[in-house]
Design a protein around this nucleic acid. Structure first.
Length: 224
DNA sequence: GCCCAGGTGGGTA
DNA sequence: TACCCACATGGG
């Protein structure tokens, strides 16, 4: 979708920030935990990821070397609640081994250097596509990139800002082209989009005047 | 029982 | 490039 004047994404960000306040994302204690969570949450509810992360912690396996040393069927059982557990186990172990072998087990090293190169390095890993790569870069390595997920697509399509058929890179470019490249902003914005997407009333009843999505809709309409 | 969830990769036209 | 499909568990 091309528009004469680019949509003011920052105005929506400020509105959401004022409404919801700081989100303190990503819910993880270490950069590696972000990597694990980002892979496990693929097409999966976060509540199921929490169980798997807890199991990995309880097994003392929430570290690259530890995951690399697990038998694949053990790893499968630990992450089973996240679904797709066979392919996720293989991919998680592969990424863990590469982290250990090439980057001293350090996520920051994996994500170092020019952003586009680091992103390409992540995308070359098995099971890491654009959303997972951007999540890792932003939330584990604090690099300035924007995460486009199903919530982002849904919300901004609902607002009439996206057509809904744009590809991942096109949507990401829309955000990157119109927002200051600021890590805390990208971090908070994506977290706020998730909060909004999960929190709004789906039935969109007129009497639900405090529904945050309707609030944003009104704001977007007024600002045109 | 049915639908969906913070995707990715492989195959086919 | 543009679809189509497999992958799998848990909650509403």
């Amino acid at each position: 979708m091309t528009t004469a004047a680019e949509f003011d994404f920052q105005a929506v960000f400020l509105l959401l920030k004022a409404r919801f306040g700081p989100r303190q994302w990503w819910p993880a204690e270490t950069p590696f935990e972000v990597v694990v969570g980002a892979i496990l949450t693929q097409n999966t509810a976060w509540s199921n990821v929490e169980r798997a992360i807890a199991s990995l912690k309880a097994a003392g396996a929430l570290a690259p070397a530890a995951i690399g040393h697990l038998a694949i069927d053990e790893l499968e059982q630990l992450i089973r609640p996240t679904g797709f557990f066979r392919q996720k186990a293989v991919r998680l172990q592969h990424v863990s081994n590469i982290l250990v072998d090439r980057y001293r087990g350090d996520v920051a090293r994996l994500c170092a250097g020019p952003l586009d190169e680091a992103r390409g390095r992540l995308l070359a890993l098995p099971g890491i596509g654009p959303e997972t790569a951007d999540s890792i870069l932003l939330y584990a390595a604090h690099r300035p990139t924007f995460v486009v997920d199903a919530y982002t697509r849904r919300i901004f399509t609902r607002l009439g800002v996206l057509s809904g058929s744009e590809g991942y890179e096109a949507i990401r470019a829309r955000f990157l082209n119109t927002l200051p490249h600021d890590v805390p902003l990208f971090n908070e914005f994506h977290a706020l989009i998730v909060t909004l997407a999960k929190g709004h009333c789906r039935k969109q009843r007129p009497e639900c005047s405090t529904c945050p999505l309707q609030q944003v809709c009104r704001f977007v309409l007024q600002s045109r």
